[in-house]
């Protein structure tokens, strides 16, 4: 059994090294979507993957990429199973993943809070986030905490669109879920 576990750990590492199809700076392991790898037979492996959002279309590309990588390493039969429970949270993104997101120009989710939308105050033309208990969303370009929300939804379901009021650059924010 010990050898099996070692094999599974190695396979988990291989599958986890696959880059996210939409955020290629992150690996699936850093994104926290890879749940487990089980060896089912001599040449057969089952991988458990969880989606970030229920409707995330990237999950199909992820499955194909995992299958390819494991095939390349000699596993003949790979089945990727989608699991929903426990639900994925942005807290599952590793510290290294957060650092890479910031470098890529995406503000990482703030950790250690209950997920969900935050209260905002409406101005005539802009929304001002009022969340005194929370650290501000920092601009990934200049580091300023003086940023505003432009839209709760951005290029993908997991991101919100914000703008920095210091350097004026718009940026994506991986919103807390």
């Amino acid at each position: 059994m010990v050898t099996t576990t070692a094999v599974e750990e190695e396979l988990l590492r291989l599958a986890g090294s696959v880059p996210d199809p939409e955020l290629p700076v992150l690996t699936l392991e850093e994104l926290g979507v890879l749940r487990a790898v089980h060896v089912r037979g001599a040449d057969s492996v089952e991988v458990e993957l969880t989606p970030t959002y229920t409707g995330c279309p990237a999950i199909e590309a992820m499955s194909v990429d995992i299958e390819r990588v494991l095939h390349e390493h000699g596993v003949r039969e790979v089945s990727v199973r989608t699991v929903l429970s426990p639900a994925w949270s942005t807290d599952d993104i590793s510290d290294e993943g957060r650092r890479k997101l910031r470098e890529f120009g995406i503000a990482p989710p703030r950790g250690g809070r209950s997920s969900g939308p935050v209260t905002v105050t409406l101005g005539p033309t802009r929304t001002v986030t009022s969340e005194p208990e929370l650290e501000p969303v920092r601009c990934p370009h200049c580091g300023s905490g003086d940023t505003e929300l432009l839209s709760r939804f951005s290029s993908t379901a997991c991101k919100a669109l914000r703008r920095c009021l210091s350097c004026r650059e718009p940026f994506d924010h991986f919103k807390e879920l």
Binding site: A87, G116, R152
Partner: peptide, 16 residues
């Protein structure tokens, strides 16, 4: 399992 996941998504829909 689905509800636990989707309720977090729907929270953003309601906020919107």
């Amino acid at each position: 399992p689905l509800a636990a996941k989707a309720v977090k998504e729907v929270a953003y829909h309601q906020d919107h």
